[in-house]
Design a protein around this nucleic acid. Structure first.
Length: 199
DNA sequence: CGGCCGATCCACT
DNA sequence: GTGGATCGGCCGA
């Protein structure tokens, strides 16, 4: 399956990248297990000019440094002390744009996902919610910085990448809303930067 | 070094 | 609809 190339992530419009990630497949080879899910919800974070972004005003810290890397890098951080949230860095090196992956529909390796969530069967929407996305595919905040354009499966080393499997998204099925949990961002809290693929 | 709070989830009522 | 879990990041002293 075609892995999304560097050029996909290098585009300058982070909002367009967030929209285009709908229908793509988030894949991981972690802990000797392969799992994947189709992306159905994303949020764009426009870096320096976006009050909701961790990198607002080009703020650099040990954590946000990853956001300044070249597009196609994974930015994963811990939220509420217990959830690893997975983001895709976009744009050129030095421009801290990112897309938060908020929801997936399980595809490959459902048995591993059930094991990771300690369940016998899937509930209604098992992969909706950014914390659940990471839980299902095995992503941990220690995986921040991984190169998303490199894939692999046969050594004991974590790999994370995104594939285009040819699923064609009907634009009429994309719902656009404001982002979740960013009330502190003032006017930027209302920006239409959240994309949901209604199946 | 202390303290506050977060791009959340789930069990329980 | 509500609150508890649970801890790294960040800021100010």
């Amino acid at each position: 399956m075609p892995v999304l190339p560097r050029s996909f992530y290098l585009r300058t419009d982070v909002v367009a990248v967030a929209r285009d990630l709908l229908g793509k497949y988030l894949c991981t080879w972690i802990g000797e297990k392969f799992t994947s899910g189709m992306i159905v919800e994303t949020e764009a974070y426009a870096g320096a000019s976006d009050r909701a972004s961790h990198a607002y005003g080009n703020r650099r810290t040990a954590r946000t440094e990853i956001m300044f890397r070249i597009g196609g890098t994974a930015y994963v951080y811990l939220c509420y002390g217990m959830h690893s949230l997975f983001n895709v860095v976009t744009n050129d090196e030095g421009i801290p744009h990112a897309v938060l992956i908020r929801g997936i529909v399980p595809a490959d390796g459902p048995e591993h996902m059930l094991e990771r969530t300690d369940k016998k069967s899937f509930p209604k929407n098992p992969g909706i919610g950014p914390g659940k996305v990471s839980k299902l595919v095995g992503i941990h905040y220690s995986h921040t910085g991984i190169d998303l354009t490199v894939t692999g499966s046969n050594v004991n080393k974590p790999f994370v990448w995104i594939e285009d499997r040819g699923y064609r998204v009907n634009p009429g099925r994309i719902k656009v809303t404001a982002r979740i949990g960013v009330g502190y961002a003032g006017e930027d809290a209302h920006l239409p930067y959240r994309f949901i693929l209604v199946l």
